[in-house]
Amino acid sequence: MIALAGSFTDPSTIGYPAVFGGVLLGSLVPVVPTGAVVGAAAAIATTTDHLSLPIVVLLATVGALLGDLTTFGVARVGSDAALRWVARGQPPERLAAARTRFATRGWQLVVVGRLVPAGRIPVLLAAGTLGYPWRRLVPAAVAACLLWAIAYAALGIVSGGLFDNPLIATLLAALLVLVVGGLSSLVATYVRRRRHEADR
């Protein structure tokens, strides 16, 4: 009984499900800062023996992948209704151009969409509604989620390397994730604005 109670207070017993569940939930409903979850867990893994960094990356990858495949699957199943929602106000030629982009370089869009803040859900919804095939989506999503997990874990490793204190390293990892996410969002907005101006 004491051993059982001890297992529930073991940080790894709590930490691993928190990483997987937090990333999965955030991938389905974007209310959890999934990058901060991965960065914080990587910081803890770097500064303590409570978590294993490879397992953190693996769980984050699997959680993100399941969330992305679910989002894509929902868009595929309800493709007609989803297409009407996505296509509202869009001219037919723009939809045709989107289909062409997915047909020629869909895997690149899936990878970039996962790495760019606020880019994942629009890309997955577009892929699903435009009929992007599962056989191409799954390998691209696996690569995208693995790269994403490694990138945010690296931020946690940096913070863990700067500070031996797990609490400080975790807070710094979360801060780094927010800063990088904010900068990436600004860059993406700037690129979209320039592209829109060029299309005029």
Results as ranks from 00 to 15, higher is better:
Ile157Gln: 14
Gly161Ala: 09
Gly73Pro: 09
Val177Cys: 14
Ala103Trp: 01
Tyr152Ala: 01
Val57Asp: 03
Arg99His: 11
Leu53Val: 12
Gly119Val: 10
Ala82Asn: 10
Leu162Trp: 14
Ala98Val: 03
Leu53His: 07
Ala127Phe: 06
Val116Cys: 01
Gly119Asp: 07
Thr170Gly: 07
Pro133Arg: 15
Gly182Asn: 10
Arg120His: 02
Thr46Pro: 02
Asp68Arg: 03
Ala82Ile: 05
Ala144Glu: 02
Ile150Tyr: 05
Gly160Lys: 04
Leu183Arg: 05
Ala81His: 13
Gln90Gly: 07
Pro117Glu: 02
Ile157Asn: 03
Thr170Gln: 02
Ala40Lys: 05
Leu66Tyr: 12
Arg114Cys: 02
Val62Phe: 15
Ala153Glu: 07
Gly128Ala: 13
Leu69Met: 12
Pro122Phe: 05
Trp107Ile: 09
Ile168Ala: 08
Ala60Tyr: 10
Leu53Ile: 08
Val158Thr: 13
Asp80Arg: 11
Ile168Glu: 02
Gly128Tyr: 04
Glu93His: 14
Phe72Ile: 11
Leu172Tyr: 05
Leu51His: 15
Ala153His: 01
Arg105Pro: 08
Leu65Ala: 06
Ala126Thr: 11
Thr61Lys: 08
Gly63Pro: 01
Ile150His: 01
Ala87Ser: 12
Arg120Gln: 06
Gly67Tyr: 06
Leu167His: 06
His50Pro: 08
Ile168Ser: 09
Pro139Phe: 13
Leu162Thr: 00
Gly89Tyr: 14
Ala143Trp: 07
Leu58Pro: 04
Arg105Asp: 04
Leu146Tyr: 12
Thr100Asp: 12
Asn165Ser: 15
Glu93Ala: 14
Leu124Asn: 12
Ala173Leu: 05
Leu124Tyr: 10
Pro122Gly: 03
Ala153Tyr: 06
Ala144Val: 09
Ile55Cys: 13
Thr48Met: 07
Leu183Asn: 02
Arg76Thr: 15
Ala40Phe: 14
Leu109Ala: 11
Asp164Arg: 15
Leu137Gly: 10
Leu162Pro: 00
Leu183Thr: 03
Leu115His: 09
Gly67Asn: 08
Ser52Glu: 13
Pro91Ser: 09
Arg105Lys: 13
Val111Phe: 05
Ile157Arg: 04
Ala42Ser: 09
Gly113Met: 01
Gly67Ala: 07
Ser185Asp: 03
Thr70Phe: 12
Pro91Asp: 12
Ala126Ile: 04
Leu66Pro: 00
His50Gln: 13
Ile168Val: 11
Thr48Tyr: 08
Leu124Asp: 04
Ala149Met: 11
Arg94Ala: 15
Val77Asn: 06
Val110Tyr: 08
Val180Tyr: 12
Gln108Asn: 11
Ala174His: 04
Pro133Ser: 13
Leu51Val: 11
Trp107Asp: 11
Gly106Thr: 15
Ala82Pro: 04
Phe72Trp: 10
Arg99Leu: 10
Arg135Thr: 15
Ile44His: 05
Ala97Val: 03
Ala169Asp: 01
Leu147Asp: 07
Ala169Val: 08
Leu147Ser: 07
Val112Thr: 14
Pro117Thr: 00
Phe72Met: 10
Gly63Leu: 06
Leu69Trp: 06
Val112Ser: 04
Gly156Thr: 00
Gly160Asn: 08
Asn165His: 15
Pro92Met: 09
Trp134Glu: 06
His50Val: 12
Leu146Phe: 14
Val177Pro: 01
